[in-house]
Structure formats: structure tokens, C-alpha cells
Design a protein around this nucleic acid. Sequence first.
DNA 1: CTCCATAATGCTCAAATAGAGCATTTCCGG
DNA 2: CCGGAAATGCTCTATTTGAGCATTATGGAG
Lengths: 318, 318
Amino acid sequence: MRESAAEATLAAELIAVMVAANATAPRILTVEDGRALPSGPFASSHRSLQSGLRAWVEERTRHPLGYVEQLYTFADRDRTSGGTRRAISISYLGLTREAPAPPETGASWQDWYRYFPWEDRREGEPAVSSSLIAPALRAWAKTAPAPWARRERSERAAIAFSLSGQAWNEEFSLQRYELLYEAGLVPEAGAAASAARAHATSPAPSLGTPMLHDHRRILATGIARLRAKIKYRPVVFELMPPAFTLLELQLVVEALAGMRLHKQNFRRLVARQELVEETGAMIAETGGRPARLFRFRRAVLRERAASGTKLPLLAQPR
Amino acid sequence: MRESAAEATLAAELIAVMVAANATAPRILTVEDGRALPSGPFASSHRSLQSGLRAWVEERTRHPLGYVEQLYTFADRDRTSGGTRRAISISYLGLTREAPAPPETGASWQDWYRYFPWEDRREGEPAVSSSLIAPALRAWAKTAPAPWARRERSERAAIAFSLSGQAWNEEFSLQRYELLYEAGLVPEAGAAASAARAHATSPAPSLGTPMLHDHRRILATGIARLRAKIKYRPVVFELMPPAFTLLELQLVVEALAGMRLHKQNFRRLVARQELVEETGAMIAETGGRPARLFRFRRAVLRERAASGTKLPLLAQPR
DNA sequence: CTCCATAATGCTCAAATAGAGCATTTCCGG
DNA sequence: CCGGAAATGCTCTATTTGAGCATTATGGAG
């Protein structure tokens, strides 16, 4: 079954979604004045994909990146806008702490909600969502030619954006972006947009800052992955300073998830899982009662190799 | 930050981990007499990676593949054994039902535990694990030069193979294979093996059937992904016939997980999530009381877009 | 024809978790 | 000394798990 025919020859690039976070917002490393994600060629000198990525990100940001995982590989034909050769992009998600980007590199850290304003629900549903997106998607659903397509569109829109009273699911960031793309509501859609908006009366509203190529889609993929991951792996700590208060930790998680959490229950969760230990120090600049400082208990990375099982296991082999 | 230097040119191949299952064992589609996973070049005629994969798998197996998802992209330099050019392999996980493989294609379905005998714990710990693997890994840990390396090795081995009383985690199939590879206990390790076993007195024991290149590693990746996925997405049903009994469903899940499940609790789980509905028919050839036949409720794919939240959400924005 | 092994199904009970909130404590800035 | 803002401690109830017992149906063996 293996083809011995000549294999296609193409270019491969590595592309990084580097995430940092502070109490206010998650931040991502960008280039080109915030319009692109950092990317570089996959050179043959690299031992592996991941080491290739580490090499050039660290070279450019002079900043060790802690946690790195492969995100997704993209290769749709219409990815490159008029490029000569087909390219494969292998994307990675990396977690670090924000350090000033060396200005000569053209790199800068940006609030990720700048690109996805509808993803931030910490203060409730943002205006852009209720006033622009919801009506635009409903209109888009109506313009489908076939009845089943209309139903399919409105159903997808309802699920992704909780249009019919469903609970908001913060992990659907990719589906939401793809829906806006299909509906021609983001400028990246380009040609597709005109077709999708054929029946629309108004021009495309501005939904967040666009990016070059499909970088915003890749970023949405990274957001979805990270939002899912923080729930079952202690990766948030890669984004935290060595010592932090529980409120600081909660604020970072809230920033990533784009949702508010119940303070006492959040603390109980962290405590029960023994994710942190006290440093012994306190910090007073909290605006209220001084808070204890904690550090991540690195040991859990070894101990709790075990993830949460959901299968009703049988204790004894029957 | 974007490099404008010439990008590396390389070949890309698609490689499939096609999984089916019966009540006894999960099965995977292989070529080359069971020694390789089906793979093919990523041709420029393909619209996207996924459509390229679908195209040639369906062409060869004449079999529609239902669920397909991207697995991982491999590109380590020492992947290809002496190949001329560097290759990138983009692997996919696909779920189907087993259909006789057209013999002219050289394809065949194989029990996946043939390649990973230590992964099947349905009848308790298999002999190969306790009698071969455990002692070999302990010995390997001892041969590390530095004390910290010895501790690191034995700790990793203990977690992956539950050597110190930890609960077995079926999702660690990849880590287990990688450990055996590092320890030179699988023939694929090749050159690395001799170094790792420098101090061993006996030759490498035979641990499962080997595969060409790094295909067994890719298969282990697929197993890990599938074992994790069945816990939070209703993907098992892609492997089931149109109608099935609850025991059949359970046996397939057990085959995939390599572990026994508690029957009543498994049924309760399926019932509570409303994953299935009765067909109305019964089947008598069960060896006991006749069983009801069920079918998958496809509607859940839309309804239950919501996955399980673990974050202690706050109902009202404060 | 009865007994039995094998499953399918129904139910129960206790322990562990998750969801919501109330109550106190402690420090800061008037 | 007082009010505001957080940090912390606890409580209470509703679910969800983990383990098992009990009952019901069939086919086959004696």
C-alpha cells in the first residue's frame, strides 16, 4: 500500500503560539506589528520539530520556553495567498512568562482578546457578541439556499455562541472563529466573504483585529487547546511567577478561560489537588487582608501522572 | 521575525492509524504483512491533508472512513533509516468498522495487542510485563551513570508501568513504548539498543511484534489518543455496528482500554448520558437472558456539544 | 422436566465531589 | 475608630462515583 511514486516536495514552516498571562489578560507573542505569529522555516539542521521550534524562539526572544506541545499541522491548498509552492505549517503551543521582547526583532506581546473580543466573558456577554455577531449569524443562517442548510447553520451558530440559552463553552473558540470565517464576518475570509455576504445589506463589521494568512485561526486553535488543557493538567503554573497568591492564580485562569470562577470553590479545588505549597511569605499589597504566597508543587508532575479517569473501572480482574 | 531565507524542501507523507474493533480485540489496518501502517505521499492534488488521507485510504480499502482526526506530525532526523531526503510524516487516527481488506492491496487487519502485549490488562497483568519488562526496566534504571539519572529512570518506569503499586493508567501507552525504546528493549531501537543494553547480560527479549521505521511509536500515539478520547467523546460508536447490545459495547470499550469495567456502572453511565436508544429488537444468542439491542443516538453529537467542565464556574458575573 | 450457568436488569448504600453562600479575620486608608 | 477589600474557614445540599446484592430470562445438560 505504500506509494513508491515520487513524493510531493514542499516547504515546511514552524509557527508558534507563545502564551503568557498576567492578572488582566492572556498575552501572545506576535511579529509584524501584531499582525502575525512568529514563524520560521524548519531547517534541516534541526534535530526534530520541537527542537527546531525551541531553537529559533529562544534565539529570538532570548527567553527559555518551558512547556511546549505540538498543536496542529495545516496544509490547505488555499492557505498561502498566491505563493508559488505549497507549504506545510506545523504549529506549536508554548507557555512562558512575559519578558520584554527585544525591539530589534519586531516582536511584541499582545492581549489575545484583541483578536477575539467575543471570547472574553469575564464581564458578561460583550457588546460585540450580542449586537453584532448574533444578528449577523442569524442573518447568515437565513441566506443558506436549502432548508436543511439553514437549520444546520443556525444550529451550529446557536451551539457555538450560545444563542439559544445554552451554557457558554469557552473551549469552542476555534469553532466560533470558523463560523465567523464561513459567514464572511472576518476580513481574512477574503473572497469567500463576498459570496457569504451576498445578501447582506451592510459591510462586514469589524470583529477583532485581523491577522495575516490563517494566523488567527491558528491562534484560535491554540486558545481552544489551552482552555481545554488547564482543566486536567497543571499547566497554568508555567504562566505564573515563582510565588503567587491564590487570587493571582485564579485571575490568570479566569483570563485564559474568559470566565469568572467561584473563589472559594476554586481554592478548594487547588487545595484538594495539592497543586501548591506555601512559601511561608505573605504579601500585603492586595487591597485587603494580606495573602499567603504559594509556589507550584513540582512534585505533582511526577505523582499525578494519573489523569482523571472517567471509566467505571473494575477493581479486580473478574 | 519571519525568516525569508530559503526554506527547507522536503517530502511529506500521510500515515494512517485505522482502528476497528470487535468484542475480543481492537484491530488496526496494516500493510507489508503486518509490519507497517498504511502510508502514502501527500500529493499536491489533495485539497487538504485530511482530504488527501481520506482519498487514498478509501481508494485502497473501498471503505468509507467515518471519524478521522489528525494525530501528530513526526520529523525527527533519525526517523528515516538512511533515506536520502528528510521526510515529514503527518499521522491521522481513523475509526471504522472492519471490512475484509482487498487482498491485492497487501493490507490486513491485526490485533493491536500483537504489537503491545503489555497493554492488555483485561486478564490482569500479563506475564510479559511482570516477568520480562519489570525486571528489565529496573536493571536499565540501575545502569544510568549518574545517581539522579538512576532515580529519574526508575521513577519514570514506575509511573508508566505501575511498578510501585500505582494504579495502571491505560493512557500512557506512548510513554511506555518510549521507555522500552530508550531501554533498548524493542528491536526498533537499533543502534540505541546496544548502548542502552551495554551492561545487560541477556539479549533483548521479544516484546511484541516490531514494525518498520517508527510505525509502532505512531501506533502507540494513536492508542493513547483513542484511550483518552473515549472517556469524554462518544467516539466508540464509530466502531460499533448499527445495532448492538450493551455488553457488546462494553466489550469494545474494554478491548480499547485494555481493562475491565464494572458492568452495572458502565450501563448507568451510558444511560445517564443518553448515548443510545432501544431499537425495539432483542437478541437471544447471548448465552444468558436475551439482551435488548440499541443504536447510537446521533443527536447527542449536536446536543452534547458541551463537554465536561471542571472549572468551578461562577453563575453570575460578579 | 428440573437444575444450572450465564447474562440482562433493577436497585441500594455510602463515600466523594461539585455548586452556592454565609461568616470571620486582617490590614489599609481615612 | 470605621468602612472597604480580600483572605480564609465552614456549612449544606444535590450530584456523581464506586461497589455490590437481588431478581429475571434463556438455553443446555442431566
